[in-house]
Design a protein around this nucleic acid. Sequence first.
RNA 1: AAAGCAGGUCGGAUAGUCGCGGGGUAAUGCUUUACUCCGAGGAAAGUCCGAGCUCCAUAGGGCAGGGUGCUGGGUAACGCCCAGUGAGGGUGACCUCAAGGAAAGUGCCACAGAAAUUAUACCGCAAACCGGAGGUCAGAUGUCAGAGGUCGGUUUACCGGAACUAUGUAGGAAUCGCUGUUUGGAUUUUAUCGAGACUGAUGCUGACAUCUGAUCUCCGGUUUGUAAGGGUGAAAUGGUGCGGUAAGAGCGCACCAGCGGUCAGGUGACUGGCCGGCUAGGUAAACCCCACCUGGAGCAAGACCAAAUAGGGGAGAGAUGACGUUGCCCGCCGAUCUCCCGGGUUAGGUCGCUAGAGGUGUUAGGCAACUAACAUCCCAGAGAGAUGACUAUCGCCCCGGAAGGGGAACAGAACUCGGCUUACAGACCUGCUUUGCAU
Length: 130
Amino acid sequence: MKSKEDLRLRKNYQYQTVFKYGTSMATRRLVLYMFANQENVTRAGFVVSKKVGNAVKRNRVKRLLKESYRRLAGNIMNGYDLVFVARPTAANIQFSQAVEEMNRLLKKAGLIPVSHKSAKPAPQEAGEKE
RNA sequence: AAAGCAGGUCGGAUAGUCGCGGGGUAAUGCUUUACUCCGAGGAAAGUCCGAGCUCCAUAGGGCAGGGUGCUGGGUAACGCCCAGUGAGGGUGACCUCAAGGAAAGUGCCACAGAAAUUAUACCGCAAACCGGAGGUCAGAUGUCAGAGGUCGGUUUACCGGAACUAUGUAGGAAUCGCUGUUUGGAUUUUAUCGAGACUGAUGCUGACAUCUGAUCUCCGGUUUGUAAGGGUGAAAUGGUGCGGUAAGAGCGCACCAGCGGUCAGGUGACUGGCCGGCUAGGUAAACCCCACCUGGAGCAAGACCAAAUAGGGGAGAGAUGACGUUGCCCGCCGAUCUCCCGGGUUAGGUCGCUAGAGGUGUUAGGCAACUAACAUCCCAGAGAGAUGACUAUCGCCCCGGAAGGGGAACAGAACUCGGCUUACAGACCUGCUUUGCAU
């Protein structure tokens, strides 16, 4: 579907727009850039710089971020372009840590409603605990 | 069994759930859905070589530049691989080598060292001469002391003498002291005397002084010979031994190394034998010489399509236009319009893009690298860039008594191959070596 394609930022100009005009906030391992895209969908992109490590480590961090985003995507409000940037401290992050940290970051940004939070992440948290 | 050498293989497994990229089939219909299949490595890495492929350039040849450098083979090609040769290392299995030419020329050889290439002589060694000092030996003379011989006195003792104690003295000693002539002749004495070839005892010891000579040592100097030896140095003008020499030296000889020639073996690098002359420093990852190879850029190469935009060329049409003309036709110019062509740009798309100098197996050839034939298999193809997450069980390692807990390297395809290099927890297999133990 078109909606699936639109979930990802694909082009360099899209990233440049978010970086240039968007607002940012950060946690210890992640940085989030967000930009209201005037559309009805929310798209995400992921950036892992060379400071994080070699190609293997960067690949792993990016995949973990993508998987985390996939878990959380249903709760996120529409209408934003998001760019998650991994900081060098994220080099050896675990998957459960990635999910938790991204969740905190999105709540901090106000993209996840507080009411929804208790409803949907519940199974994921249960899974993490197990 | 331990230590080691060489080569090779692997790089957790299985199941389930959710998710991602691609191919195929079907449906829907031009974008999705369903099913199914596939989906990182031995180095995918570094991008160091060599190729394919693409575009550009290019008649041929040469120069310059770059690369390679023992031999033979393999290969599409290579700076790679295999088999050898040589040199070096290791007890050994085995390992390492940028391994053409220094007798074409030029350059360099720091420091140290006497000296680093037209070397030459600092020390040393040796010869000759000169000067000085010292030792030893011998001789001569003198003095002194002792000892001894001899002679005399003499009972041994003892006393005394002598140019005594040596270029043969004392002593002994064959033998000789004659012949002729004259004076008349003979004998004896002189003679415990003289000469005497020859022989020959003791012939000594110590001290001192002077002189002479020889020799040795040391010091200094001059001249000459020498390259054996010499704190050095990466490297010292072949090495070792014997002879030789004043001392030495390929000065001579033997062996070794090196050089040249020749013969034999080998495709060849090279090896072995014989002969010869008798010495030639190192450095070519310094220039250089020789032999061979060599156009450039790279998949963001490059090809095609689409849309938009600025605008070039060509063709046609062409006003109530300008010029020629009094005017018209006509000629020429020409705003504008239509079509065509080539080119450029890009948050577009498609191709290039994965069936290949491919993998596996068998057979044949080859010591091997590798090659050939046959059979069989299809094994990633993205584009902010898929190959992931979670759970369970088993296997491995560590901690722990157990329960249990923790850990698992180096590392991610980007046009494709052949190599090289570098990184890598651990596990396994094969062959071999050395040492120890047992039989």
